[in-house]
């Protein structure tokens, strides 16, 4: 079974030749069969352009890509049969009911809801009480679940989810990732994009992407262990003045607010000086957001 996704040197730009807008710049990725892969970066990083190229909806300017072994240009018809795609914008038929949408998407792929129901059962049961409601009248969370069902109903080999958790509250985001873990067990390769850095830990591997370039690809653990400088969380009454103090402290490579604390990245071998008796200082493990900030600065 080859459900891999291979991207080699893909570039894409929009706009005129005089004023090009670079969407993707020499992107290469090698995503394995059954992997839950995260494409993590802010809006405008190029996530959607890459998804559209891989789902054969957009042509790259340069480079090539295969999905489950099929070339996305030469064998685009084969690719379309085996991918599931949930775009960032809700793209179901608003004036069809929940059930009609599901049957419609099954039919255009020559699949039947009954045959593949096992794939969507856990998700569909949550929206089944509203199966006669028009999709346009569903709440945001229910739309998202229906869209996922419709992307799955033809039993795709590779599933592309473009920002499925954007604008979704923290509790529902957690539930959505739990659903993805269940799908992964069924052998589907899943590629998810998200602007939320904290979701990286739910993926097998992630690509951190910014301004059309990949900053790093690795497991979340390896990305974190690649952050080698000592990192401290610091808190004191008067957080604004503390931040200024940190910026003026020798040996502090970077300092930025991080929730309740400020994070201070230190030059290796230099320890943080005394910051006042009311200051709380503790060494902390970086998370993906610390890594992203550091990588952004390296690439700036």
């Amino acid at each position: 079974m080859n459900n891999s996704v291979i991207v080699q040197g893909v570039s894409k730009q929009y706009g005129s030749k005089k004023q090009p807008v670079v969407a993707l710049s020499d992107i290469s990725l090698d995503i394995a069969t059954g992997e839950l892969f995260g494409l993590i970066g802010p809006d405008g990083a190029g996530k959607t352009s890459l998804f559209r190229i891989l789902t054969t909806l957009l042509l790259a300017d340069k480079g090539s890509a295969t999905v489950a072994g099929y070339d996305v240009v030469k064998e685009y018809k084969a690719v379309r049969k085996i991918v599931g795609y949930m775009p960032g914008k809700f793209s179901l038929y608003q004036d069809l009911t929940v059930e009609e949408n599901l049957h419609f998407f099954a039919t255009i792929f020559h699949a039947s809801v009954a045959d593949n129901y096992h794939l969507i059962k856990d998700i569909y049961e949550q929206i089944a009480p509203f199966k006669d409601r028009r999709a346009g009248k569903l709440s945001g969370g229910m739309k998202q679940k229906l869209a996922l069902c419709c992307a799955l109903i033809h039993e795709p080999k590779v599933l592309f989810l473009d920002e499925p958790t954007t604008g979704v509250d923290a509790v529902s985001r957690n539930e959505f990732w739990d659903m993805l873990q269940l799908l992964k067990k069924k052998g589907i390769t899943i590629i998810v994009s998200t602007p939320y850095m904290d979701e990286a830990s739910r993926c097998d591997r992630v690509a951190l992407i910014q301004n059309g370039r990949i900053l790093q690809v690795n497991t979340p653990e390896a990305i974190i262990s690649g952050f080698t400088q000592p990192l401290y969380a610091v808190k004191a009454p008067g957080m604004l003045s503390l931040l200024k103090q940190l910026h003026n402290t020798p040996g502090v490579l970077a300092a930025y607010p991080f929730g309740e604390y400020h994070h201070a990245v230190m030059q290796p071998g230099v320890s943080l000086p005394f910051l006042g008796k009311d200051a709380e200082v503790k060494a902390v493990t970086p998370n993906i957001e610390d890594c992203f900030i550091q990588l952004m600065q390296h690439h700036a």
Binding site: P42, D43, G167, P195, M197, P257, E289, F292, M296
Partner: peptide, 20 residues
């Protein structure tokens, strides 16, 4: 209303600076 949705982590912090 969700002013920083989808914004990169560095800009998000700059934005909060403006709020302060």
């Amino acid at each position: 209303d969700e002013p920083t949705g989808g914004v990169d982590p560095v800009t998000r912090r700059e934005f909060w600076n403006m709020i302060y």
